[in-house]
């Protein structure tokens, strides 16, 4: 199963490298949203809860673009039928799509987070980097699991470009809460008390629940 997933993932990554469809669009989107926030809030620099909120809302909105394109190739060219004909475990498709989305998000964040620090963030990013990386990784994992499931769920509906964000964003609210709350102390001007552990715990719980749940129900989306 891991090998099958690896093969599908390699296919997706090669496709992305050749067409350059999702990651550049998502990155460009985050930069545009920063500009929108700058004018919308009329602030030159942000700190504390405002900064962490802007960063996370931007990243989650960018992930919507990735999710709605996630199964485009499979849908348009009958990749799912081919997968169903092959004697492989269907969970492999989920694993590959989730891993692909995870890598897309990492690639976006490599540009988007430094850009945020330069464009909008008041206090420096330096000291808080390890914590921020841990939060980003756990957050990406959650988005990847939910996104891979929701993308498949929405792929069959007629108005999939509308259904995917509507499904994805409410499901991500607990993730947004824990990520934004965990990031908030890192972005403060003066370091205050933080309870990173509680939020990372909640984030881990969220990730575990949705990874297990998605693996359990994903098979039913491909049956035919």
């Amino acid at each position: 199963m891991i090998r099958t997933a690896g093969t599908i993932l390699r296919k997706d990554l090669r496709l992305e490298l050749r067409t350059k469809e999702s990651v550049p669009a998502m990155t460009l989107f985050t930069l545009t949203v920063y500009v929108l926030f700058h004018f919308g809030l009329d602030r030159d620099s942000l700190d504390g809860d405002l900064a962490s909120g802007v960063l996370w809302v931007t990243l989650l909105l960018a992930s919507v673009i990735g999710v709605s394109r996630l199964y485009a190739a499979e849908r348009e060219q009958g990749g799912v039928d081919a997968l169903l004909l092959a004697p492989v475990d269907r969970t492999a498709l989920f694993l590959a799509k989730a891993a692909g989305l995870l890598l897309f998000l990492v690639a976006v964040e490599i540009v988007a987070v430094p850009a945020f620090a330069i464009l909008l963030l008041g206090p420096g990013l330096g000291g808080a980097l390890p914590e921020l990386l841990a939060i980003l990784m756990l957050g990406n994992l959650g988005v990847a699991a939910v996104g891979a499931l929701v993308g498949a769920l929405a792929a069959e509906s007629r108005a999939r470009e509308l259904t995917a964000p509507l499904l994805l964003l409410p499901l991500l609210v607990p993730l947004l809460i824990s990520c934004a709350q965990a990031t908030e102390p890192l972005f403060r001007q003066e370091q205050g008390p933080e309870d990173l552990g509680r939020w990372l715990g909640l984030l881990t719980l969220y990730d575990v629940v949705f990874v297990l749940l998605s693996v359990a129900v994903f098979d039913y989306l491909l049956e035919d």
């Binding site: 499931l149 769920l153 499901l171 609210v173 607990p174 719980l205 969220y206 749940l213 989306l221």
Partner: peptide, 18 residues
Amino acid sequence: SVFAITAGAFVPLNFVAV
């Protein structure tokens, strides 16, 4: 059904988070 199961599991999790 897949939606109903996902959302059903989401209900308690969301309450804990908020």
